[in-house]
Amino acid sequence: MSVLLFMINYFHRILEYTVNHFTLVLTVMILSMVLWFSVGVLISRYEMLAGAVLGLGNILFCIPSISLFGLFMTIPQLGLGRRSAVLALVLYAMMPLVRNVYRGIKSVDPRVVEAGQGMGLSSWQLLWQIQVPMAWPVIFAGIRITVVMITGIATVATFIGERNLGRLIHHGITRSNSDMILAGALIVSVVALCLDMLMGLLEKKLVSPGLRYQQRE
């Protein structure tokens, strides 16, 4: 109950934090999907790059987020605030996104690809008409994990000046205010679920019904 009261009392501030949080994650997701999708496609075609790129993704993923935010903050061109936050989060998204795009494309049955080749599809057409459409289920599994993960890590960006839901949690901890912490945590979860649902809708639009059946099998 007291959590609800807290939310009502500080409605305007919480709304501001929520909007900030949401837009930060959305920006990161849009940038990441464009960037890491392209990289994933690239390494599926230039196999010799795959090891290095996936390795880099893993290393970035292992760096504690708070140190990465802190590090970017000290770079003059980035500084405090959104630019550093976006960059750091985009780098975190690299591992799950690139890996799933790469795996998704690689997991397409080579016989289907070859059938397409035999029909006269060029290698570019094979990619867009066969490999990518058939990889969507795996790619979206990666996207949905990433969006939930990024929403969580984004709370840490509060330390470099992002006025988002992480601030509720941070201030809640320093003031031993459990209502504040709970409010922050709850709303973060709601934001994560909303974004996940949004991606779910996109997935439904993109994944062919012919493949949805196979997933259930």
Binding site: D109, R111, G118, L121, S208, L211
Partner: peptide, 28 residues
């Protein structure tokens, strides 16, 4: 690619594209 478009190619059933409808497969 041009050569293959001018040659009919029939393989075992796996050759149909699973994410395309019958109509789209024939229209490929």
């Amino acid at each position: 690619d041009h050569l293959r478009r001018g040659i009919g190619y029939v393989i075992q059933q796996i050759g149909l594209l699973p994410h395309r409808t019958v109509e789209e497969n024939v229209a490929l």
